[in-house]
Design a protein around this nucleic acid. Structure first.
Length: 480
RNA sequence: GCGCCUCUAGCUCAAUUGGCAGAGCAACGGACUCUUAAUCCGCAGGUUCUGGGUUCAAGUCCCAGGGGGCGCACCA
């Protein structure tokens, strides 16, 4: 049967284009001379004796198709199509007596058949398990995922465009890493047979990208998948997409301007406004974003003086008071960060830049020019979620070696997320890294923000799921 | 990893206190020349997630396991 189906089909128009072109044209009952060829899935079918109405949907929209028996060969085939079958349609643009823009079919061609029923034609598919495991079904049975993923594509394309216009060069760096550096996270491990060597999947491209700046690439960025061996939640997927960019000769203050302009620009491009809705709250992404130090924000939130110069017992008392479980080895910096995350971060609607993190928790950021225990770092918080992380990059090889050694010490004491000493990276810094600013943006969370999506799984086409047992419903119904 | 909730026909959902497992849509057969989730007639569709247990009787109650959701923890 399928050998009789065509191998290609030349359509002349996207459906969405026809809908907007003829929106205010053609009187009810009028048929035009405009002849089009379109293709898509037959989503609704209303045969009515010797006439036929249906709805044909492609990825730009849905349009009614109409046929009258004497005017269409093989009329009988039409009513035998199943909902979901792919068909090609040729005909004239018309408007029905009731005013519905339609295509008056003069020929119809089957392109592919579906063997499985799709969801309820009104409600689609609501079973989240099925929606994630068989995204192809979700995408054609439900409307909103299609919109979200088309928006995601636009967002990523626009980021590339925006950065390239600023003179940034897109690069690709290794995913198989001998040392998983550039972030605090537990890595995945894999194995290369020929080298008989274990590799880590990267947790961040950071160190490679800065090596490129050492090499003279003054503005670089990478949009790529990173992998962190952590739990799943509405905000976390073990593999996710990170944008990192590095620019020579700028500091973190310059990057705030780039960051807020980029985010506002994306919102404007996608939604025609800088106002987005997050958790039923309206948030305006219009620059400039607020800029506050972590110390200020903690004080505003709980009225306690928390900073890296305070007596450690005072910080421990504050931690206890707010239910922060801490380790005796933590110094002021780590305590401060944990207190901030527990008491302050999730209450920040933003958009806001949180500035000046403790050096203790930022091993790759450059020491603050005004405070030896802080670094020049900011995170951008919107809707209580961390969206971006950036700093003036540490470019002193001796300082970097020292801080990596401290990290390695922590790792030796059981901190699975601490870094190792990356001698290749330190050697690169010895060749000279110019003053550089680096910015990372979580693309998945950015898409969530811009599309008003609550769960990260709804912005990732195939989110990580538990494996399903052999007797499961998916196995049971497939491959007949 | 811990806690709470959830799983019934291809899809969306019912099933009273533990008392014969149902409807709409889809599929299948038929009618219908302007429908809009078309309508009408007919037909068929089940390991109630799995395995145990209590009971005269379990979709319903109990135990264990699996999938999913939410919250916490970890993190971006």
């Amino acid at each position: 049967m399928s050998q009789n189906l065509p191998y290609s089909y030349k359509k002349t128009n996207d459906i969405g284009e026809l809908i907007s072109r003829y929106a205010d044209k053609i009187d009810p009952g009028e048929t035009t001379d405009d002849f089009v060829t379109v293709a898509g899935r037959l989503m609704l079918s209303r045969p009515q004796g010797k006439i036929f109405f249906g709805n044909l949907e492609d990825w730009t929209g849905s349009i009614q198709v109409f046929a009258q028996q004497p005017n269409l060969d093989h009329f009988e085939d039409l009513i035998r199509f199943s909902l979901g079958d792919w068909i090609g349609v040729q005909g004239n643009i018309m408007r029905t007596k009731r005013g519905e823009l339609s295509i008056k079919m003069s020929s119809v061609t089957p392109l592919a058949y579906t063997k499985h029923g799709f969801g309820d034609k009104f409600k689609g598919i609501t079973d989240t398990d099925l929606r994630y495991r068989q995204r192809e079904v979700d995408l054609w049975a439900n409307d909103s995922p299609k919109k979200v993923f088309l928006a995601r594509s636009k967002i990523v394309a626009h980021i590339r465009n925006y950065l390239q216009n600023l003179g940034f060069v897109e690069v690709e760096t290794p995913i198989l890493n001998l040392i998983a550096g550039g972030a605090a996270a537990k890595p995945f491990i894999t194995h290369h047979n020929a080298l008989d060597t274990d590799f880590y999947l990267r947790i961040a491209p950071e160190l490679y990208l800065k090596r490129l700046v050492v090499g003279g690439f003054e503005k670089v960025f990478e949009i790529g998948r990173v992998f962190r061996n952590e739990g799943l939640s509405t905000r976390h997927n073990p593999e996710f997409t990170l944008l990192e960019l590095y620019q020579a000769y700028v500091d973190y203050k310059d990057l705030m301007i780039l960051c807020e302009n980029l985010i506002a620009e994306l919102a404007q491009m996608l939604n025609g406004t800088t106002v987005v809705t997050s958790n039923d709250k309206q948030i305006d992404l219009k620059p400039p974003f607020l800029r506050r130090t972590m110390e200020e924000l903690i004080f505003e939130s709980i009225g306690e003086k928390v900073n890296v110069h305070e007596d450690i017992d005072h910080l421990r008392n504050v931690a206890k008071k707010y239910g922060v479980i801490f380790d005796e080895s933590w110094k002021q910096g780590k305590l401060m960060l944990e207190i901030y995350e527990k008491t302050t971060e999730s209450n920040l609607d933003g958009p806001i830049f949180v500035l000046d993190y403790p050096k203790e928790v930022s091993p790759l950021a450059r020491t603050h020019r005004d405070d030896d225990l802080l670094v020049e770092r900011f995170e951008c918080i919107i809707g209580g979620k961390e969206l971006c992380n950036a700093f003036s990059e540490l470019n002193d090889p001796e300082d970097q070696r020292h801080r990596m050694e401290l990290q390695a010490l922590q790792k030796a004491h059981g901190d699975q997320e601490a870094m190792e000493v990356d001698f290749d990276y330190i050697r690169a810094l010895e060749y000279g890294l110019p003053p550089t600013g680096g910015l990372g943006i979580g693309i998945d969370r950015l898409v969530m923000l811009l599309t008003g999506t609550a769960a990260i799984r709804d912005v990732i086409l195939f989110p990580t799921l538990k494996p399903i047992s052999l007797e499961s419903k998916i196995e049971g119904e497939e491959i007949d």
